[in-house]
Design a protein around this nucleic acid. Structure first.
Length: 171
DNA sequence: CCAGGGATCCCCT
DNA sequence: GGGGATCCCTGGC
């Protein structure tokens, strides 16, 4: 299977919304590991979410993959997710993990190793094509309560595969 | 040891 | 646009 990342969120040092905030634990250990590896966690008792660790070992920062555009293996994704429209296959962090079968076993996976079960590649041609359809948009993150004002969500405006705007929590 | 919270999704209105 | 599902992790006792 293959998919193009179209929406992400960053979680950084000194960010109360970051799982690494408050120190290393069994759950967030991968975040403290070397860069280029996956941090996969379980949420709301139902879903898995996948991140790419981006800073040196010991610096707990990561990028949450929030939405992807399916490219190869759509039939397989449809089997794992029963939805009316393909658009709903991977337009959310939990959805895409179900569609791509990402779970605890991939926590810590080397995202830079093409022999890994989960890896990320850079495709300049595709990037150019995608950006020609719409700009990258920067907004606040979705579904969090702490540090909700930080502009750390990024998505391709021209993509129909981006997740819906989240509910804004009152305070 | 155990109660409570959470970077979501889906179904209901 | 509101609420429940459902389990792992954390912190408090």
């Amino acid at each position: 299977m293959a998919a193009v990342i179209v929406e992400t969120e960053a979680y950084i040092v000194d960010d109360p919304a970051c799982h690494g905030y408050g120190g290393e634990s069994a759950r967030n250990r991968s975040m403290y590991g070397p860069p280029g590896h996956a941090y996969v966690y379980f949420i709301y008792g139902v879903y898995w979410c996948a991140n790419a660790v981006c800073r040196p070992k010991g610096v707990a920062e990561a990028v949450l993959i929030r939405a992807v555009e399916p490219v190869v293996g759509i039939d397989l994704m449809r089997k794992r997710r029963t939805v009316a429209h393909d658009k709903q296959l991977t337009n959310g962090p939990g959805k895409l993990c179900t569609a791509l079968e990402i779970n605890r076993t991939l926590d810590g996976a080397d995202l830079c190793d093409t022999n890994s079960s989960l890896w990320i590649a850079h495709n300049p041609e595709h990037k150019k094509l995608l950006l020609s359809k719409g700009p990258m948009i920067t907004t606040t993150r979705i579904g969090i309560t702490r540090a909700a004002h930080l502009p750390l969500r990024f998505y391709l405006k021209g993509s129909p595969w981006v997740s819906k705007q989240g509910k804004m929590k009152k305070h």
